[in-house]
Amino acid sequence: MRAQFSLSIIRKAAGAALCAFALAAPAVPAQAQDAYPEKPIRLVVPYGPGGATDLAARALASVLPEFLGQGVIVVNVPGAGGAVGAQQVEESEPDGYTMLMTAIGANVLRPALSPDLPYSYDDFDYLARTQINPNVLIVKADSSYKSFDDFAAALKAEGASFKYGTAGAGNVTHLGPNMLFGELGLPASVGTPVHYDSDGAALLALLQGEVDFAQGNLASFASALQSGAVRGLAMTTPERVEGFDDIPTYTEVGLPEVSIVGWRGVAGPPGLPKEVEDAWQAALAKTTEAKSWISLVKKLGDEPGYMPKEAYDPFVKKDYERYVKIAEEIGLRK
């Protein structure tokens, strides 16, 4: 894996150099466009460096060139909860050289919560979903809730009032617990969200005893789970996650609808040429089968979850509709 990494870096650097020369030399007449990726491709991450989506994009960019035949440069365009970067790609030329690392936040949640955004969830040409990002419901290790049933019973009890930590309003960590309340037939008022800046900050608040529970990104909670500082009660994936086999899934506890998972993939601006779509779909299908990519993704706390365009389009639509519904129910959609 290491050899691949370094190779790809060399390729990337060489590609970047070529790219710069191509840009710096406008006098060169446009070559006949025979094979699609003839220069490196920018993969826009609508979040800052070091975040989960950024790391996912960099993992992808390290393996993709093998199958795409060109370097992939990760470009961070953060702002407005992912909306700035997504908007930038949506407006860009559909030439296949500016692509978007999709994420549930920028592609579905932002448009679902703010109808006045300049783009809509379906303004992109979704190419494939690459991975999902399990969420896990956690309580502090010394809490009296030993299992999900204990917890659900406490939620249902008369006068229950819980505080839960989120990684920001309108985030999966905020909507997920609301889905749980809805499926249990409880009003949203049983849990009061306390909005922090990140999953890590929400975890800290839980450890401090400031909030009662949190449901968020497995990767951010993994170390606390392994060290025994917090207890995992339920996982949002359809199947149990390797390494966390003792945590049951929501499906197992009888609430299959609470399957809120984050996801990431690749999309382009609307109107991509057929050859670009084909090239990317083929490359993504192969990349997501590559051992090096799978091991990277797992280390970063995501689960490989390849989904081709045919399935991805309706998946995004379904996700969007369900979050619009939740947002309307709890009065979040303005």
């Binding site: 990337k12 710069a20 406008p26 440069i73 470009v75």
Partner: peptide
Amino acid sequence: LVVFFQVAASVQLPRGMLGRALW
């Protein structure tokens, strides 16, 4: 600056309206 930002740091510098129209 071009070498540093565009080549080394792979920052795509804005090409402007003219640049977009030309290439």
